[in-house]
Design a protein around this nucleic acid. Structure first.
Lengths: 214, 214
DNA sequence: ACGATTGCGTCAGTCGATGACACCTGTCAA
DNA sequence: TTGACAGGTGTCATCGACTGACGCAATCGT
């Protein structure tokens, strides 16, 4: 029966119709809509599946967990951010480069309506703020790799891990503050301020000055 | 339930028998043992309940979630740490006071066998590291209050939240590093090093110097 | 002694998540 | 054309965390 909506369009070799959302797309879209209207916890995966016209089993074939359907579509932005990060001038201090990356990424990936909805859902669901924290921690590894490369130190170096953890945490607060304003405030300004608080500007350069890292 | 250990002493005029573990105590003890032996994910709440001689329903009457049974007994230490924190000299810079608190708390609450087991369980259960992150975030609020008081700023001040988040994250790495060594390394040294990396020493005092925070 | 509280058992049910099996459809090679 | 194969799906059954409702028994306060 799902073939009616999806496969029915496939043989259509004429002009491509952008309105041929995949099952995953439909699930994510419908889910976000339901989450916004009734709250994350009040919506069951079975409901989402039904609203998308598929079985619950199919839901879980596309999204390993309920949380993943909420974050569908954010992976590209995350990956892009990492890329921007590695694109920064290796001579810049870590903090400065991170601020630059946040600003540039904001330009390349401005807030979309779906992002705003997502933030709304997260902010109105206490149990989700925990999940967010867990999500963020995964980014720590990524940032550790980046810092380790710049400092020419191993990834699991204590200093590297500490700074990565601190920066990820600071960035989380920045994004929180920013997204709770709906993207109105200048994220670059927030980032600059936050990172000045957390890392000594100029103390660590690409080669690591070692000034304050005793 | 707490009556057995604390208030239970009042009516108990005879000798107090320490070998009268409450149901919660028994559940937690049995659970930790099972977790260590077979892994957190391989042990069901029903098993824990059975091993403790109660029904599964009773398990959930004592512990809202499976995670809570693992962390049973850590609340006191956490509360004590907060107390130590507020006991620091208000004139000390935030970073320095935090390091002091970590050291003093370590002296007052050295690692117990159960703590070591807990760390082992957490470290061998990937899905739990996420949960840990979530747990840690709750501490952020506490630290925000503390910093806000020292800086005489509101709790939800941006700078306060950033520093709190960064410090909690740094502390998490410190505790990770320390507990993965079984408590062998000097946690004070780790803490000092980590916090020097994250906050400018001497830059912010009780009144906030504002030197590098502008 | 009596009503209230507390602790627990039992039963049934919800919800997230997974495994097993079968079906249908499109593709590609023989 | 035929047949093997893969991808996406439905159905059924089940697990495991967790909750609500009801009832029983020991204990506690007055």
């Amino acid at each position: 029966m799902a073939a009616d909506t999806a496969a029915g369009i496939a043989p259509d070799t004429s002009d491509f119709v952008p309105s041929a959302p995949s099952t995953a797309e439909r699930l994510a879209s419908v889910a976000l809509d339901l989450f916004v209207r009734r709250g994350y916890d009040e919506v069951t995966t079975a409901e989402i599946a039904e609203a998308a016209g598929v079985s619950q089993r199919t839901f879980f074939r596309h999204f390993p967990t309920k949380l993943d359907v909420l974050f569908h579509g954010t992976e590209e932005a995350s990956a892009a951010f990492v890329e921007v990060l590695y694109g920064r001038d290796p001579e810049l201090p870590v903090g400065r480069a991170l601020v630059d990356a946040i600003i540039e990424h904001d330009r390349a990936f401005p807030l979309r309506p779906d992002d705003v909805s997502r933030v709304l859902v997260v902010r109105t669901t206490p149990s989700l703020s925990d999940a967010i924290a867990a999500y963020e921690v995964r980014f720590e590894g990524e940032l550790s790799r980046w810092i380790a490369q710049r400092w020419r130190r191993p990834e699991d170096d204590f200093d590297v891990r500490v700074l990565a953890a601190a920066l990820v945490a600071a960035r989380r607060v920045v994004v929180e503050e920013w997204s709770s304003s709906g993207g109105a405030v200048d994220i670059g300004e927030l980032a600059r301020r936050a990172i000045e608080l957390v890392s000594v500007p100029g103390a660590e350069t690409s080669g690591r000055g070692g000034a304050s890292v005793g």
